[in-house]
Every structure is written in C-alpha cells, then in structure tokens.
Amino acid sequence: MRTLRLVAALLSPALLLACGTGTGTGDGDGDGAASDPGPATSAPSSPVPAATGRVSTPQLALVMDTGRPELCLGPVAQSWPPQCRGLPLAGWRWSEHPEHEEQDGARWGSFAVTGTWDGERFTVQEAVPAARYDVPGAEPTATSTPGSTVRPSLSPDELAVVAEESALLPGWRSAAVVDSQVLVDVVYDDGSLQEWADQRWGRGVVVLLPLLSGDRAP
C-alpha cells in the first residue's frame, strides 16, 4: 500500500520549462527520440479533467484545514502543523470526522476519501479515518502501463528534461525517472492527458499515475 509520504519541504511545480520552436511531432508509435511537438501539441489548455462518476484516493490522504478544508495529494511538508498544496474540499465537516489533530487554529487528519471530482473541487461522500482503514489500498492506476510499449531510447539527460517539462500537465504533482521512463503523479486523468504526453514525448516515455482513481469520461 502506498502510504502518505511526508517530505522535508514542499516541492514546487514552478520549474523552468524549455519549449522549442520546431514543428515536428511524435508519431505515437515510439519510433524515435522525443521531439519538439510544435504548436499542435502545446501544453493542454483545459484544466484538470473531470470524472463522470465516483472517485477515491487509492491510499490514505491528508485532509488539511487552515481556513478551508483541502485534500492533499502529493508531497506534504513535515512541519507542525503539516503543510501541503491541496484541492478544494466540499462537504467536509470536522464534527463528522473527530479523528483529527488541531494546532494553532489548523486541523488535519489522514483519511481514505471517496466522492466526486468536477475538475476543480472534490466533493466528499465518504471518509474512512486512518485508525479504521485496515484494507490494503491499491496503487494508483497508470493511464499507460510502464514498460508495456516500444518507446524512444532517451539518455538520462533527455529524461531529466522530460521530467521537468511534464509540469506542463494540468494537475501535475511530481515526476521521477524510473527504469528509463518518467513516472508522473497527476490529480486525475480521463485518458486525454496520457494521449497528449504520448504525442509530445513518444508513447511509453511518460507514464501518468492519477492520484484520484475512478470513472473516466467516455
């Protein structure tokens, strides 16, 4: 089970993104190095995709409230109280979830949360506190399977650039180079973000791992 990871400092998605001016595009079959996709595959202009049905956190997540409730997905600062860059959380009442901590006006707790996602806000329908969460959680479902396709052979330096450029993706949370691929945590993907990543960098180079799992748009 993936557990909530506390890191020493918040990771900032504010990366220097280098965009070339060429017009070549990937063919989607992974037959060559990743190239500048040009205007046709510029950064997605739409926000994070919405889900058509219920979604859930496939692991325990931190609910943080320093003035408004937020659902923390991704890195959390190891401070007291903790800090994170969270999603707006609707329908949350602390009186219904007493299993939490308080400090200096902040409230927080770890929960497995189920609800709906409209692309901007998570609306809670059910929350199981960490103390009662004894069913192993599943890993986030990749929208592309690591290692499953023939992909361009990129150098470590090229993969590092791709990892930085992946911050273009709506809902980006973090990226890491693993076994010659770039694994990217995003809030949610209905398949369109993975399709864009395949077009930009070549199929199989970037694998998206949505932090909310559930139904995809048709």
Rank of each mutant, 00 (worst) to 15 (best):
A9K: 14
L11A: 13
S12I: 01
P13I: 00
A14L: 10
L17I: 15
A18E: 14
T21L: 10
G24Q: 12
T25M: 10
G32Q: 06
D36F: 02
G38S: 08
T41C: 09
P44S: 07
S46C: 02
A50V: 04
R54I: 06
S56Q: 13
T57I: 08
T57E: 09
T57H: 12
L62D: 06
V63T: 13
M64S: 04
M64C: 00
G67T: 10
E70I: 00
L71C: 07
L71I: 12
L71G: 06
S79P: 00
R85G: 12
L89V: 10
G91E: 08
W94D: 13
H97N: 15
E102V: 09
Q103S: 12
A106W: 13
R107W: 05
W108T: 10
S110T: 14
F111H: 05
A112K: 15
V113A: 11
V113K: 10
E126K: 15
E126Q: 15
P129M: 00
P129Q: 03
A131H: 09
Y133M: 11
D134C: 03
G137M: 00
A142N: 12
S144W: 04
S148A: 15
R151V: 00
R151K: 15
R151E: 04
P152Y: 10
S153L: 05
A160V: 01
E165R: 15
G171W: 09
S174L: 00
A176M: 04
V178A: 03
D179F: 01
V182M: 03
V182R: 07
D185W: 04
G191Y: 08
S192N: 02
S192E: 06
W196P: 03
R200K: 14
L208Y: 01
L211T: 10
S213F: 00
S213Y: 01
P218T: 02
